[in-house]
Design a protein around this nucleic acid. Structure first.
Lengths: 157, 157
DNA sequence: TTTCTTGCAAATTCTTTGCAGATTA
DNA sequence: TAATCTGCAAAGAATTTGCAAGAAA
C-alpha cells in the first residue's frame, strides 16, 4: 500500500487507537506500523525488523515482536492464516471453510455451498494451478469477547 | 473426519501415492497420517506427536516433523495459512484475497468483487463477530511447477 | 513526575540435521 | 540385499521474558 494520502490517514487513526487504549505512541511503534502497511510482501518478523532498522538503527528485535503482537491484538494489522506461531495441520480435504478467532487462535470449521462454488479468477490461473479454496473469516469468538482485558493468550493446540 | 469407510479409502490412496513417488509406507507414516485425518482440531506438530505416541510410544518428534512436511509436499494434507513456520503479517486492510504456493510459500494478492461480496453464514455469526474475510486459494505456482524435483525450499520472507 | 516502553541478554520453545542402526520393498 | 527410514542427540532458528535505564503523557 503506497498511497501517501491513505498512509497518512491510517497513521492518524493509529495514534487515536493507541490513545484510546491507553498505550503510548512511541517512535518505534509508529515506524513498525508504517513498515507493515507500506509493504505488499506479507513480511515476516525478520523482514519488518530489517526495514525498521533502516530508520531506527537501534531498534531491537524483541520490540518488533512485542509491537507486532500489539498491533494484531488491536486489529490494526492482520496475519496470513491463524495469528499464532506454530504450524497447524488440516487433514480434511473435503471443501470446508474456517472462522478464526484472532485472540485465542481457535478455528471453527463450517461448510457453505455458496463458498464452495466460487470461480477462480483467470488472473490467478496465470500464476499457478489452484488445488484448494478456503474462505477464511476472522474475528473474535464469543468466549474472547467476554474476557475483554485478558492478556493475549496463546493457543496451544 | 471420523467415517471409518472414508478413512480406509484414504489410507489406501495414501499407500498408492507413496508407492508412486518411491517413498516407503512405514508404520510411522501411516499412523501420523491417520492421526491428522482423524482430527478435527487442526492440530499442531506437538499435538500430532502426542496422539501418535499413544500407538507408537517410541516414535520421535523429528519423525513427526519430517513426515508432516512430506505429506504436505505430496498434497495429502493441508495447513492453515501458508505452510511455513514463521508468522507473516499483512498491513492491507482493504478487501483482498490470496493465492498461496504450497511449495515455496509465496503469496500473491488479488482482488475480486465476487469474493468480496460473500455473505457470512448465520452459523458463523453465532460463534463470534467477523471482522475480515479472505479467500485463500492454494496450489503450486508456475515457478515451482517447473523445478519439480527440487527440495522443499523454505520461503524466507 | 508517573507510568509505560525499550534494549539488552539470557531463557525458552520450535524446528532441523548428521549419523548409525533398523526397516521396507 | 539395496535403498530408505527412524531415533537419538545435538545444532540452529524463532520467539519470549526479566529487568534497569529511557521516553511519553
Amino acid at each position: 500500500m503506497h498511497n501517501p494520502q491513505e498512509i497518512r490517514s491510517r497513521l492518524a487513526r493509529f495514534r487515536e487507537e493507541l490513545k484510546r487504549s491507553g498505550v503510548k505512541a512511541t517512535h518505534q511503534r509508529l515506524e513498525i506500523f508504517r513498515e507493515v502497511i507500506g509493504s505488499d510482501e506479507h513480511p515476516g518478523v525478520e523482514t519488518v525488523y530489517r526495514g525498521v532498522r533502516r530508520r531506527i538503527p537501534s531498534v531491537s528485535l524483541d520490540t518488533v515482536y512485542r509491537t507486532l503482537w500489539l498491533l494484531l491484538q488491536r486489529g490494526l494489522i492482520d496475519t496470513l492464516g491463524p495469528s499464532h506461531n506454530r504450524v497447524r495441520f488440516d487433514g480434511n480435504v473435503r471443501p470446508h471453510h474456517h472462522f478464526i478467532c484472532r485472540r485465542c487462535g481457535r478455528v471453527f470449521d463450517f461448510t457453505s455451498r455458496a463458498f464452495d462454488e466460487l470461480a477462480v479468477p483467470s488472473e490467478v490461473k496465470a500464476w499457478g494451478s489452484v488445488e484448494r479454496a478456503h474462505v477464511e473469516l476472522k474475528g473474535v469468538c464469543g468466549r474472547c469477547r467476554e474476557k475483554k482485558n485478558d492478556p493475549f493468550l496463546k493457543n496451544k493446540s
